[in-house]
Write a protein that binds this DNA or RNA. Structure first.
Ligand SMILES: [Mn+2]
Ligand SMILES: [Mn+2]
Ligand SMILES: [Zn+2]
Ligand SMILES: [Zn+2]
Lengths: 143, 143
DNA sequence: TTTAAAAATTGTAATGATTACAATTTATTA
DNA sequence: TAATAAATTGTAATCATTACAATTTTTAAA
């Protein structure tokens, strides 16, 4: 999505964070693949065009984007960190059959929680797990 | 909490899962420390009483309890897995200053999500991050 | 343009939590 | 008691992430 890319590029400029060639590649990938990729998925793809790419550069870029508030780190499975260029408030559903992660809208702010009065909340996360409709259908047909 | 322990012990018996000496220790620890401990915190404590304890045993026991549906794995930070003996639906708040994890009540089921119609949902998680009141006070006083 | 300083990138090694697995010990059953 | 099954140990392997020094590239100054 070119629009998203431009918005983020502007914000980086505003924050005096340089958008180098490689960082552009990473940002382009993230905007074009909002399906919550892993570091390795990003690396493997960009590595095809830039053979002497280092994984460290991917990590660096992702950390920079996160620090700038332009990327969200998603922690559903304990062994695979994923990244989400969509920073607006939304929830995630992970299918435990096919591994896909689906976005869904949830207005978590509409649930004021009494117990957290006096807490400073900076980040809200919601994620569900289960089986997606496609996989449910496959499972049924396999019987 | 002795009551919780007994409930879980009964359920394990019902599922034909043996409650060995070491598993008892782990379960006792979890019931007495519902503050979402890490594997290492559990290991270090029990190791004092059982010097030739193996970390593998802790991992085994935790995996067994999770599989039996009696323990929840909590994934807030990507480098520290935590465990929660409270399996009823509730949310977590992690203070990024002191690291403490607070429970809070949230009836996530009262938010039907249209986009997930046709999905089989087996697990719902909510966690927030920020700063707890105690740490907010300390920060203010440090100025 | 030339030069010096700063920033970005690379590549290798270290870290650390989790898992794999064979050997050993302990508990259960016949 | 002996045979079998289950639990536990301890070491090695795995694998994602981080640390960090060396190198390359970019930027800014002279
Ligand atoms: Mn998302
Ligand atoms: Mn909890
Ligand atoms: Zn699926
Ligand atoms: Zn705190």
């Amino acid at each position: 999505m070119k629009q998203k890319y431009n918005l983020i590029a502007n914000e980086l400029r505003r924050q005096n964070i340089r958008l180098s060639h490689l960082r552009k590649k990473v940002l382009e990938y993230l905007c074009q693949n909002p399906n919550h990729p892993t570091v390795d998925e990003i690396y493997v793809k960009i590595h095809k065009e830039v053979p002497n790419l280092s994984r460290t550069t991917i990590y660096n870029t992702l950390h920079i984007l996160i620090k700038a508030g332009l990327l969200r780190l998603i922690n559903i499975e304990d062994n695979e960190t994923r990244y989400d260029i969509a920073t607006q408030n939304h929830g995630h559903f992970k299918c435990e059959e096919c591994g896909a992660i689906f976005d869904f809208n949830i207005d978590i702010d509409s649930f004021p929680i009494k117990e957290l009065t006096g807490f400073k909340i900076t980040d809200k996360n919601v994620y569900f797990k289960g089986v997606c409709p496609g996989c449910l259908l496959n499972i049924k047909n396999d019987n």
